[in-house]
């Protein structure tokens, strides 16, 4: 990007901090966040907007609440190149996503999944997807229902038919 273009962008409401451009993101519920462009472009969606020069004013992040967006930004900060000195530290930080036994943690992961999907953040998407999968592993159907807080809408006949269909898997 040329200097002229940067100056242009700041005059139209953008701010710069040193040589790093800041982007303004607004959550669905109106919270406003200023994020370094270099960090926010971990989102393929935002990177596309920046590349197309559409990121010059406030970027509305629909479907993502301020609460979730704050978590997404925390993720970006940790995953900025050079932010964490080693891979081990990053893995340790990421390990908070490993246990989602609490309902509130679970809800956070669903929200983050939706946000990661909407903003197209591959690393966050993979992490949350595998966190949910890890939590399902080893659970029986009843345990899965309890875990997801889902009531079965099958009648006995339908459930029996499904069990018969994949008979071999149901002695666990």
């Amino acid at each position: 990007m040329s200097t002229a273009a940067t100056a242009d962008a700041s005059s139209s409401g953008d701010t710069t901090e040193g040589s790093v451009r800041l982007l303004t993101l607004q959550s669905e519920d109106g919270e406003v966040f200023e994020v370094k462009e270099t960090i926010a472009t971990q989102s393929v969606t935002i990177k596309g907007m920046v590349d197309d020069d559409c990121a010059t004013s406030t970027i509305p992040v629909c479907n993502v609440t301020g609460r979730t967006l704050a978590m997404v930004i925390e993720w970006w900060n940790k995953h900025e190149i050079g932010a964490v000195s080693n891979e081990k530290e990053l893995k340790e930080w990421e390990s908070q996503f490993d246990t989602i036994d609490d309902k509130s943690d679970r809800d956070d992961v669903y929200d983050l999944l939706m946000a990661a999907n909407y903003l197209n953040i591959p690393t966050l998407l993979d992490c949350c997807t595998s966190a949910v999968a890890e939590a399902i592993k080893g659970k029986s159907t009843d345990e899965m229902r309890e875990f997801f807080d889902i009531k079965s809408d099958f009648d006995e006949k339908e459930e029996d038919a499904l069990r018969k269909e994949n008979q071999w898997a149901f002695e666990n």
């Binding site: 519920d29 919270e31 479907n63 609440t65 301020g66 609460r67 979730t68 704050a70 809800d107 669903y110 929200d111 999944l113 939706m114 999907n117 998407l125 997807t129 595998s130 949910v132 999968a133 890890e134 399902i136 592993k137 080893g138 659970k139 997801f148 807080d149 889902i150 898997a169 149901f170 666990n172």
Partner: peptide, 27 residues
């Protein structure tokens, strides 16, 4: 701040599919 009430079943189908791909067949 405010919170979305997303539950597993309300996730888009491609996300649920991606989650399932991590699982073993009996799961």
């Amino acid at each position: 701040s405010t919170k979305n009430a997303v539950s597993f079943c309300l996730l888009p189908s491609d996300l649920i599919h991606n989650i399932l791909l991590y699982l073993a067949l009996p799961e």
